[in-house]
Design a protein around this nucleic acid. Structure first.
Lengths: 215, 215
DNA sequence: GTAGCGATGTATCGGGCCGATACATCGAGG
DNA sequence: CCTCGATGTATCGGCCCGATACATCGCTAC
């Protein structure tokens, strides 16, 4: 799973480990908080051994700070790596439908063809529906055996399942009709913020603005 | 984490591995689908070595089927194990607030004193709030850098965070006012099912049932 | 000036947990 | 009779995590 994510990010631009971890954290923030270095470095080593990435020291593209000879290692994807990435993106096994696997695949959906997107979305939906049925069974059949807290936990979990199924259904509908993914209006809207100049790479300012939350 | 769960279940009644796994699955169904045997058996061995549980072969409490000499191993909690369980229940480290840790602790809240319950609930809330703030940051600051699918993933994650915080807040309020946990009315309702006879400990019938679980 | 601090950066180690796999018994149905 | 699914115990390779160690850079504070 991590392999896919790393290959995907390195396909955009070469990076060193620290940077990679940060990008991973923002791109997959929903899935896992932050990848551990105890995972990242061994994985990078593995990918390197397999020939999917190469390392080159002291990249030249460092202008602002960093003008010294510290041992920064920049990783770059190879042709084999790109091929591998495409393979991993297209093929969907059972591990594609668990929380982590689905999250990573979804995060790279903009580089996945529609047929695969639909396949993954539907596989994930089936998975969640199964979990949901399991919880319903427990709540209706085993309810008497369980204490109030355990029951409450199941209820909350069931709720989350139902919500996710609805979300997936919406996404599937959108995919089928060829619309963009983000048709969910009102899910996230800043009150009166100027967020036009996004889609450009940068925004130089950044005022105090302490996290307004939905009106 | 698993250690806590196993000790907790064995405190209710002695069990063998297979049964333990099933109980784990229904009690922690929200948290992890089903514990792997590749996890369970080594953990049992560890607990045994540590002196928290003991194994005894071929339990006598097997009346209906099972009258043979197969190597069924029944695990029983020891006095040390009970002490250990109480310790684990009471103390809350950082791992108590991640998804798995919190879920297990919550599942045993009926055996936790109120002060600890509140501490854990609040710690979890803080954790989720941090995750939520991270997602809000990404959505407001880094939005231009990310594609529509990644953004949608973040939105969905943010939504889940906000929902969970609300859930936790409700639970905290209930704890403080001394009420039972399940005040969430209408969260779970089958269309026209008769599920009155819950809350009694038992229901004697249920005929066909090969291998009843607990009479 | 210099001492500390937080961010940047690379790397390893022990251990928990998972999926795959192997093997064996039992009751039920074809 | 014979296979199939549930019950049951157990191991192995491998991913991934948290803790830890070490080193440099730029900033602020004394």
């Amino acid at each position: 799973m991590l392999e896919l994510a790393i290959l995907g990010l390195l396909q955009e631009t070469p990076m060193h480990g620290y940077e990679l971890r940060k990008e991973l954290a923002t791109k997959l923030g929903t899935i896992r908080a932050a990848i551990s270095y105890g995972t990242l470095y061994p994985t990078l080593k593995r990918l390197q051994t397999a020939g999917f990435i190469t390392e080159s020291a002291s990249d030249p593209s460092m202008i602002p700070p960093m003008t010294s000879k510290r041992g920064r290692v920049v990783y770059k994807i190879t042709a084999d790596g790109k091929e591998r990435f495409a393979d991993l993106l297209a093929q969907a096994g059972p591990e594609t439908y668990d929380d982590a696997g689905f999250g990573v695949h979804f995060a790279f959906f903009s580089r996945t063809d529609r047929a695969t997107r639909l396949r993954i979305l539907e596989g994930r939906r089936r998975r969640i529906e199964e979990r949901r049925e399991g919880l319903r069974d427990v709540l209706s059949r085993a309810a008497g055996r369980l204490d109030a807290y355990t029951l409450e936990l199941q209820r909350h979990g069931l709720d989350a399942c139902e919500r996710e199924v609805r979300w997936l259904e919406e996404l599937i509908t959108n995919e089928r009709s060829g619309r963009a993914p983000a048709a969910s209006a009102g899910t996230f809207d800043l009150p009166a913020e100027p967020l036009q100049e996004r889609a450009a790479g940068e925004s130089p300012q950044e005022q105090p603005r302490p996290h307004q939350d939905r009106p």
